[in-house]
């Protein structure tokens, strides 16, 4: 679709806004609707739009499929790491209040950590699924 000038120009303006909005949904999830899941999907949508307009090769140069797969595993690992960190510091699995003296700060730290894990996993899985479907030739 890269012959449409309007699409190319609008996409160039909109994609940073979409990615920024994804990050806003991610890190403002404690105060407004949203969280890792929604943020990951919106973040991935930015990459999907980019590849629809500029081609799959361009976006795979920026974000290679191997990196996407590794990051998806890293997101789950981050989530579990926060759970096990709670255990190592004397609490239960996924119990955050042992991280710090202040309960509220500890809970917020734990929630931001695991939401980041969820966000990374969801965003990279959405991109990976898109790569898997779009990267295949029709046989």
């Amino acid at each position: 679709m890269n012959q449409y000038t309007v699409l190319r120009v609008i996409a160039k303006i909109m994609i940073p806004v979409i990615l920024l909005y994804g990050l806003y949904i991610q890190f403002h999830g404690e105060y407004s609707p949203g969280g890792g899941f929604q943020a990951g999907i919106i973040f991935a949508a930015g990459f999907v739009i980019y590849s629809l307009i500029y081609g799959l090769e361009k976006v795979q140069q920026a974000v290679p499929p191997v990196a996407v797969h590794v990051l998806a595993a890293f997101g789950v690992f981050l989530f579990i790491a926060f759970g096990i960190a709670g255990m190592l510091m004397g609490g239960d699995f996924l119990q955050y209040r042992v991280f710090m003296e202040d309960n509220h700060a500890a809970e917020t730290l734990g929630i931001i950590g695991i939401e980041l894990g969820v966000g990374i996993t969801v965003a990279t899985v959405a991109i990976a699924l898109f790569y898997a479907f779009a990267g295949r030739e029709r046989d």
Binding site: V76, N103, T108, V118, V122
Partner: peptide
């Protein structure tokens, strides 16, 4: 208890964090 205003987030990520971990693993 949690100190954040959005109670959906506190249920998802703190009280029911194990369920959310299951979701993340399912997606992976």
């Amino acid at each position: 208890e949690i100190g954040i205003p959005n109670m959906v987030t506190s249920v998802l990520a703190s009280y029911r964090a194990l369920d959310t971990l299951g979701e993340a693993v399912v997606i992976f």
